[in-house]
Design a binder for these strands. Structure first.
Lengths: 236, 236
DNA sequence: TTTGATGCTTGATAATTATCAAGGATAAAA
DNA sequence: TTTTATCCTTGATAATTATCAAGCATCAAA
């Protein structure tokens, strides 16, 4: 349904970092061509290989980026508000390299890719914001690559738990934000081995009850996990 | 030695995609602050964690990007002429996430990062080129991630050989561009297992003699490797 | 309450990958 | 030529991870 963006959404979107510094005229022209939609959980939004017709922006909820090959598939990232996804494909007018689906009920803004490219060419504030977003996405991928190539699966899980604890506010107890099968896929392991990995982390002060995690010995877990800002710090 | 860039290098550098569209005044100001240096093989250029003082551009030779954690290390990418490396760190004024060293004798141009950021802000042609470079680098990383998470080590080697064959012109025989220990690290395996993987690929028509590879049964290897443009095609 | 259905866990086993130790091959240096 | 060093390979073994099959828990529908 191409209805255009309701004006009531303008302020929310305007406050996103990627739109904050751009010219008002350009902003409004982007908004006129775009729209916001709410999707139920577990809905496919895009499929890898498709042409990149829209820039997607997650306003609420969360999105799973994943990829498939030869019958296997793997989760590559979670996108949380407020962030774009598949920006590089949009900018290059190239096919998506990843598929995307909602993990939960999610509100997503869609802006036609050709409009994004057109405004990019004439609005240096927007161009600057896109470079910020792209360079951050690139560095996140480098970190994910280091995590995957330099650590064992147990170390990846330990560091994931520390990052997630931090994201949830730092308390000893917190909930996993999605199912363990997907967590296993994100971490590059099977669900069976994730179960066993959780059991192995008990020795370092981790208790699991359903999706509830308690870090009972912070020091011990951190000693084992040995987190590094050059892999685990999202702000750098 | 900060001697400034010799004018004889200007045309070479000006023809690089990243500098091609920018204003001549801005180009010359970048060149005045930069310089070109030739390094012998196996020289460390930058270390992860260091502040990003210079944008690096490989003019000739080749560069190994790698990372370390807890005493382990892993090669993450090879940079070949003509390309920048560590552009994202330069743009964000953030520490390098990877270390870099020469694989062979290499000529590298160095441009002070602060100059790059300053010109980026005022030259839209340059900003456009930087976005091109960044988005391409990002998509390359996504592909590398899919390669690593979706394929077994034998499949990664098979696809690597097909890509390398293509890069070398497509003939049945070609030479590996660096030692097998580094290839193993790039592919996320040990040198011992790389040896065994080469032996296993004999069954699919691959012959190895030192660093000389011959693909004797192209069809058979491609059937096994099942290359995908969304992972293996560098042009997309 | 029973009945599925789903998601997670467990155990047994197989496959893959890593590690350790030793042995070639090659090429440059003595 | 011998020596030395480097790089690669091989075999034996250990560790890790995946697969398969079964079982348990939770929850919602019947």
């Amino acid at each position: 349904m191409r209805l255009g963006m309701p004006e009531s959404d303008f302020p929310d979107i305007r406050s996103l970092e990627i739109f904050a510094e751009m010219d008002q005229v350009h902003f409004e022209s982007l908004m006129r061509g775009g729209y916001v939609q709410t999707f139920p959980p577990h809905v496919d939004l895009i499929a890898e290989g498709d042409p990149s017709d829209f820039l997607h922006i997650v306003m609420s909820g969360s999105i799973d980026l994943f990829a498939s090959w030869n019958g296997r598939d793997s989760s590559l990232a979670t996108v949380r508000p407020i962030a774009t996804f598949i920006l590089a494909a949009t900018i290059r007018d190239a096919p998506y390299l990843m598929s995307a689906r909602t993990l939960e009920k999610s509100r997503v803004a869609l802006i036609p890719s050709q409009d994004v490219r057109a405004v990019f060419d004439v609005d240096s504030g927007f161009a600057r914001a896109i470079v910020n977003e792209l360079s951050q996405a690139y560095r996140r991928k480098i970190k994910a690559m280091k995590d995957l190539k330099l650590r064992t699966s147990l170390e990846r899980l330990a560091n994931y738990l520390l990052r997630e604890q931090d994201r949830c506010g730092g308390a000893a107890g917190f909930d996993l934000p999605f199912g363990k099968a997907r967590l296993a896929s994100l971490l590059g392991m099977t669900p069976e081995n994730l179960s066993r990995a959780f059991r192995n982390l008990q020795a370092y002060g981790v208790t699991v009850n359903g999706s509830r995690i308690s870090i009972t010995d912070q020091r011990d877990l951190e000693t084992f996990a040995a987190p590094s800002p050059l892999i685990d710090d999202d702000r750098i």
